[in-house]
Amino acid sequence: MEKLYHISEDPRIKIFEPRPASFYPKHVLRHAVFAISGQLLHNYLLPRNCPRVTFYAGPDTTEKDRIRFMGNSTATYVVAVESAWLRHIQQAIIYCYEFPPDTFSLFDQCAGYYVSLVPVTPVSVRPIYNVMAEMLQQNVELRFMPSLTGLADAVKYSTLNFSLIRMQYAKTGGT
């Protein structure tokens, strides 16, 4: 199994206890520890409450959607964030915890989510002092936009693989 990770702004977590999955109440019926695959780790290399629209072309993505959303980008993945978050992103220090994969099972392949129903002790923790540099090393195009709502709506109805993360904190308009 591939390496699994969890991103936090807290550098002192010794054990991750299962918690309610309030964002998946109909799908995860027990408390769980969530992890992200190494392939999609970049989706979480941001401050926790930073809203973001993340997407990439999957096997079922149409050429029309690939051109519409990816354009001439040579990156495999796109992460779009609101411009108002730039300073916070530049100043953020986040911590990348690596988890042993043995108690995890795949929850959502498109989003790269894994869950464990038991407490998890991290294998290691690594500080990330330059969030943007870390993201850009991972074949990601980082886009800054005044508002994400239009992009989120368009991506949601496309054939792309996507995640809409922390959108409850997004601005609702273009200002």
Rank of each mutant, 00 (worst) to 15 (best):
E17A: 09
Q90M: 15
K14G: 11
A80H: 02
I165Q: 01
V115K: 00
L164N: 02
R87P: 08
K64N: 13
V140Q: 01
Y56Q: 02
Y24T: 02
H6A: 07
G150S: 11
Y5E: 06
P122F: 14
P122L: 12
A154G: 05
P127G: 13
I89D: 01
P119L: 09
Q91F: 07
W85F: 14
L45F: 04
P101G: 11
P18Y: 04
D65A: 09
W85N: 11
A32F: 00
G112V: 10
R126M: 15
I128M: 14
P101N: 09
Y157C: 12
S105V: 10
A84V: 14
P119N: 09
V140E: 02
F55T: 07
P47L: 04
M167P: 08
L40A: 01
I128V: 15
C50I: 09
G150Q: 13
A92M: 12
C96W: 06
A21T: 05
G174M: 12
A170L: 05
E82K: 08
G173F: 02
R126W: 15
T121H: 11
M145S: 07
Y44V: 13
P18L: 05
G150V: 14
F34P: 01
T54Y: 10
I36M: 06
T76Y: 04
K156V: 12
H27D: 08
S83A: 10
F69N: 05
Y169I: 06
Q137T: 08
C96S: 15
F107G: 02
F55N: 00
R52A: 10
S116A: 08
D60Y: 12
V120C: 03
A32R: 00
P59W: 06
Y77D: 01
L151N: 02
L4C: 06
M167S: 04
T149G: 12
P51M: 06
E9D: 14
W85K: 13
K3Y: 10
I67Q: 13
P100N: 10
R66S: 06
T62C: 06
P47W: 04
T76R: 08
S73N: 03
P146I: 10
F34S: 03
P25Y: 09
K14Y: 10
T159A: 07
G71N: 11
I15P: 03
H88R: 14
L117V: 07
R52L: 05
Y97Q: 06
F23T: 11
Y157P: 06
F99I: 08
W85M: 15
N130P: 09
I93M: 11
N130S: 15
M132G: 10
T54D: 09
F107D: 01
P100G: 07
S124N: 14
E98M: 13
L136W: 02
Y5R: 03
M70K: 06
V118I: 08
I128E: 13
A84F: 11
